[in-house]
Computed example of a mutant assay.
Amino acid sequence: MSEQTLPWDEDALQRLEKIPSFVRNMAKAKIERAAKEAGEVKVTAEFLDTNKSKLMG
């Protein structure tokens, strides 16, 4: 059983594309997990900005 992914807004997707391809899938999973834990229903650029230090730590 695979986890459902969250939808992403366009700005957040553009930022995801800037992550090197060899770590992009891992980063996407980490970001989505953090968003779900925060009760988000969509990954947004605002969420990425607000949680940057936590996500990149």
Rank of each mutant, 00 (worst) to 15 (best):
R33G: 00
E46H: 12
A38H: 06
V23N: 09
N51A: 03
K30E: 00
I19G: 10
L6S: 08
A45C: 01
A29M: 12
A35R: 02
K18C: 12
E3Y: 13
E3S: 15
P7A: 13
M26Y: 07
T5G: 14
D9C: 05
A34L: 09
E10R: 15
S21G: 05
Q4K: 07
T44L: 14
K30G: 02
Q4E: 01
F22A: 11
G39M: 02
R24K: 15
T5I: 09
P7C: 13
A45D: 01
E46W: 09
L55P: 01
A45L: 08
A38W: 02
E37R: 09
T44C: 11
W8V: 09
K18Q: 15
D49H: 13
Q14L: 15
E10Q: 11
Q4M: 06
M56W: 00
L55H: 04
N51M: 03
A35D: 06
L6H: 07
P7M: 13
P7F: 12
A38Y: 02
V23M: 13
K28L: 05
L6F: 05
L6C: 08
V43C: 08
E32S: 04
T44F: 05
A35K: 03
V23W: 04
V41Y: 09
L48P: 07
N25C: 11
L6E: 06
K54H: 03
T50L: 08
A38C: 05
F22G: 07
S2I: 11
R24L: 07
G57Q: 04
E10W: 00
E32H: 05
E37T: 05
K54M: 07
K36E: 03
T44V: 08
K52C: 06
D9G: 04
A35F: 04
L48D: 12
A38E: 09
K30Y: 01
R24T: 11
S2C: 08
V41Q: 14
E17A: 15
E10I: 09
F47R: 10
L48N: 10
M26V: 12
L16Y: 05
A27L: 04
D49Y: 08
G57S: 06
A34C: 04
V23C: 10
S2F: 10
L13K: 13
K30D: 00
N51F: 01
A34H: 07
P20S: 10
V41M: 09
S53C: 06
T50S: 06
E46A: 15
L55D: 01
Q4I: 01
R33H: 00
I31N: 05
A12G: 13
Q14C: 13
E17G: 14
T44Q: 10
E10M: 07
A34D: 01
E40P: 01
I31R: 07
F22R: 15
A34G: 03
M56F: 00
P20E: 04
V41E: 11
N25T: 10
P20R: 15
T50W: 01
K52E: 07
K54W: 00
